[in-house]
Design a protein around this nucleic acid. Sequence first.
RNA 1: GUGGCCAUAGUGUAGCGGUUAGCACUAGAACCUGUGGAGUUCUUAGCGGGAGUUCGAAUCUCCUUGGCCACCCCA
Length: 456
Amino acid sequence: MEKNKFQNPSGMHDILPQDEFYYQKIYNTGQKILDFYGFEKIDTPILEMADLFSRGVGEATEVVEKQMYTLRTKGKDLLALRPEGTAPIMRAYLQHGMHTWLQPVKLWYFGPFFRHERPQAGRYRQFNQFGVEFLGEKSPIADAQIILILTAILEDLGFKNLVVKINSIGDSNCRPVYKKILLSFLKNKKSELCSDCQERIKTNPLRILDCKNAKCRQILAEAPQTINYLCPECHQHFKEVLEILDEIKVSYTLDSHLVRGFDYYTNTVFEVELAPVKKEVAEKKEEEIIAEGAVPVEAPKVEEKEELQLGSLAGGGRYDKLAKSLGGGDIPACGWGIGVERVVEAMKARKMKPNEPVVQVFLAQIGILAKRKTLRLLEDFRKERIRVAESLGRDSLKNQLARADRLGAKYTLILGQKEALDGEIIIRNMENGQQTTVDQKDIIKEVKKRLQQENK
RNA sequence: GUGGCCAUAGUGUAGCGGUUAGCACUAGAACCUGUGGAGUUCUUAGCGGGAGUUCGAAUCUCCUUGGCCACCCCA
């Protein structure tokens, strides 16, 4: 026997059927809400010109510099597997002249993205992102509304204790000013910073604000805050965003240390995290979980950690200068992306199980004649939108009943040789074992009747 | 990219240089060729891959692949 065992490429995972239910739920929940708010779906290619990202996201950003999968085509073009969704959508906006459409253009997407980095829980090399882009609107209303929508989706999925962190990093007017002020603040503290931050002083000073190092944080606690150095326009914009958020009752936390890794961000930036899962929550009793509206699943055998760290679930902001850096005009825009894998893992950690489709009826058959009739009957049920399972490959009735039981069917219909000839069919209540024989032509009606009664 | 931990049937695991590599669950089958949730019995299936050390390797070493964790960065 040949031994030829393949494993998945690092950081690229299979989504197994039981997990697909989570993805479906996220997709459906998002779609429903975005449809309401007038967002339309767009798909852009998985491969783009690599330049799109170096120009759009920024040459010196980690994602572009080190994490992009690139390849040469036979025509010598340098393509990249898309590492993020905003630049491609802005590219599409410019390319298709969407500025001539009714403004603003509101789009959403759901699909795979690629970043070559070390995998960890909640971070993959191929991951799915679900995002929105609100293009051609400069009003702070847009910033606030997309944040509202983001929290609405996460809340609809069942998350509580969302933490919206928000900040403004200014624009090309005021950010350079702030950078200078920050650098002069750090001037005599350089030696106390971690080695990474000492490097960042040269490369990307703003990122120092974001450092996780305890010592750096301590030093930075005193640092000047971006929002105190915004130019009047940026200040006004941010102020209005916060006022609108207050008005529409979206709670948020001002986080003066929040900066983002892509160059295209201006003004508003935000992230959404969950309050960490504490041990008590993870071990919560079933009743409590049911009371919260989630269906309990088997407790994982692994010991729960004190806290599950997944990083932020979603992040986004305003990117008014992206269009220009891609060679377009002034297109003010903002958007966000949700890390779908992270949401799935957070749902699992919180035992928020999506509903799996329920089999209501199982169709059992014995003998070749019955088998053929069963196939036909299946179609009748499908047209009536009643979920019916079968096991046509099997003959033993015992086996079929066991299967019906496993699937949780409420009724099993039994069609044997005798019934097939007599034009009858047996309907068996799986809870009490009661069986009645009815005419085949009445079976749909009968099943419908019984299912309806149960729903009362 | 840097550092650390890990890898045995589909899943969860035992095994600590010599074992027919054990157990539980799952799956398939028989007892019962037309009546489920139970039982008994049986079956399928495993040392991630490759080199080396050794009389002998799941066990030791190296390489490789994958997973996890911290950093970095981000969704």
